[in-house]
């Protein structure tokens, strides 16, 4: 394409187009930038901060930062790795996550990120806040113990299902996922076929009685780390190029 330009991610030259975000360009080029709240097909949200990169010297969220010609992006650096590990650990201690008994284990993006980045146990103390479980609906369960407030369900319900089943209440550490009813999930217009039920990265929003449809051992992240699908897109990794040399 004629209006393509070059962006450098960790010194590797990739092609990008006007209007793309950093994460879109990276995905196409087979460069994995970790993310939790971002999901192609939904508008960027920018809340998990996992995709924070240094773009032209400044911190930016790759999921909504537009690319610009010659942009220099730092992604897979020691510095960013430390920040990302800290963010993963924050999400683990904020919620009440028990992977060993969680039906989502193996499909869970938070768990998979922890494995990929070598987070074995959080350095931070757990909050242990009591959180509500809403199992009022015959087909769907909301377990706020596992919710990471990524708003994927909020966006999918609104933008894909044309409903507004989910929202947030309160602020700061008290912030929580709410449902559009003065009572519980069963009083909303959610349907078991809603796209909102397909997008939860963790085990906070699940269809009932489907938990073990895919056996442990055959799950998404059981054999390859999260992000491998994106990395497979890179046919052959080019050698790193110094941006200064190319630009001059």
């Amino acid at each position: 394409m004629s209006d393509e330009f070059t962006v450098y991610i960790d010194g590797v030259e990739i092609a990008a187009r006007p209007g793309q975000t950093v994460i879109e360009a990276a995905d196409e080029a087979g460069v994995y930038i970790p993310r939790l709240c971002h999901l192609p097909g939904l508008p960027p949200h920018g809340s998990c901060r996992m995709c924070t990169v240094i773009a032209n010297g400044r911190s930016a969220s790759a999921c909504y930062q537009p690319v610009s010609p010659g942009m220099v992006v730092e992604n897979d650096t020691d510095d960013m790795l430390e920040h990302r590990k800290a963010l993963i650990e924050m999400l683990f201690v904020e919620g009440n996550h028990f992977c060993m008994v969680c039906e989502k284990s193996g499909h869970c993006e938070l768990q998979a990120l922890a494995y990929r980045f070598g987070v074995t146990a959080p350095r931070f103390p757990y909050h242990w806040f009591p959180r509500e479980v809403d199992s009022s609906h015959p087909e769907v369960i909301v377990d706020r113990n596992r919710c990471i407030l990524c708003a994927r369900c909020v966006r999918a319900s609104r933008d894909l299902d044309g409903k507004q089943v989910f929202h947030f209440k309160h602020r700061g550490p008290h912030k929580k996922l709410s449902v559009n009813a003065t009572a519980r999930l069963k009083d909303t217009d959610i349907d078991v076929t809603d796209a909102a039920l397909d997008v939860c990265p963790v085990g906070a929003l699940m269809r009932k009685r489907r938990a073990y449809d895919v056996p442990i051992g055959e799950r998404l992240y059981d054999h390859e780390p999260i992000g491998s699908d994106i990395e497979h897109r890179a046919s052959s990794a080019p050698d790193p190029v110094e941006p200064a040399e190319v630009g001059s």
Binding site: R49, P125, L149, R171
Partner: peptide
């Protein structure tokens, strides 16, 4: 800061609680 964070993003919502702790 803990009380006034909007709670949108992880580092501010969780990180400030941890810093205070």
């Amino acid at each position: 800061f803990v009380e006034e964070s909007c709670g949108y993003c992880t580092p501010c919502r969780v990180g400030n609680v941890l810093l205070r702790e």
